[in-house]
């Protein structure tokens, strides 16, 4: 019933397809990012994206043309230059600075842009051109992740061994940085800069509760992301809720359920063994 409704509206169908693709590809990036202790990079980069959007609006520039390179540079700096230990500090510094620049730009310029759309996204009003860019970026991410799956695994698990066997870890880190930046920028239009990081963190974290291998983490994360997006999207349509927030809430519910079930199973196992 709801599904046939959605299928009859092209803009809803477009939002569903693009959201699905972006969700799944960001969950794959999230697996490597979370395991590299870079969970907050999505949050940081989306704030950088917000700052860049604000500046672009004041200067009457094409938003995508400003945001994309700025966020790619920020991702590159964060992943390449900061060591694993200072990563969270670097992210906090960059993200709050960018947010400040964005807020000042928007207020000084007196730009009549809808701040809400920046912060919370507007998946239903996504333009056709943006939808195409997002779909292409998502499919590209998916493709790269599969082609370089083993290399990404090795450089995430043990970079010093990987380097020693001739795998150029920095190259794969750069690839990861660029893809993350692109996905964040296109995803921001849908979920908003405040919520986009959940697409990166939730699937990997949920998958790690139940998976025993890296392959399984990747597969479970992608599946969780797909289920959460579709159920959140349908719920938002059925109950007239904000789409971005509904998707994040769906992630939250799935995470909580998986956490409780996996804990219960573990308790049951240990008590039956002992």
């Amino acid at each position: 019933m709801i599904i046939s409704d959605i299928l009859s509206y092209p803009f809803l169908l477009r939002a569903l397809i693009v959201g699905f693709l972006v969700s799944v590809s960001s969950s794959l990036l999230g697996v490597s990012l979370v395991l590299r202790r870079f969970s907050m990079i999505g949050d940081g980069l989306s704030h950088v994206g917000f700052g860049a959007l604000g500046v672009a609006a004041v200067l009457y520039l094409q938003p995508m043309a400003v945001t994309l390179p700025v966020v790619i540079i920020a991702a590159f700096l964060l992943l390449r230059l900061s060591g694993r230990n200072s990563g969270d500090r670097a992210i906090a510094l960059i993200s709050s600075s960018a947010l400040a620049v964005g807020v000042i730009a928007v207020s000084v310029g007196g730009v009549n842009t809808d701040l809400n759309a920046f912060l919370f996204g507007s998946i239903l009003s996504i333009a056709r051109s943006d939808a195409i860019i997002a779909a292409v970026a998502a499919v590209m991410t998916f493709f790269v992740y599969i082609v370089f799956y083993h290399q990404i695994y090795a450089s995430t698990f043990d970079p010093s061994f990987a380097e020693a066997t001739g795998i150029k870890c920095s190259r794969y880190t750069s690839i990861l940085a660029v893809l993350t930046a692109v996905i964040i920028v296109v995803g921001m239009r849908m979920l908003g800069s405040l919520l986009i990081s959940s697409l990166i963190i939730f699937p990997a974290t949920t998958a790690m509760l139940v998976s025993r291998s890296y392959l399984m983490v990747s597969v479970v994360a992608a599946a969780e992301s797909a289920i959460a997006f579709i159920s959140g999207f349908l719920a938002s349509y059925a109950f007239s809720l904000p789409a971005g927030a509904s998707v994040v809430a769906a992630h939250m519910v799935i995470f909580a359920a998986v956490y409780i079930i996996s804990r219960a199973v573990r308790c049951f196992r240990t008590s039956s063994v002992g």
């Binding site: 395991l35 695994y153 698990f157 025993r212 890296y214 392959l215």
Partner: peptide, 9 residues
């Protein structure tokens, strides 16, 4: 250099 809690077989 290795993370002890890395999910990997």
């Amino acid at each position: 250099g290795i993370q002890r809690d890395f999910p990997s077989s």
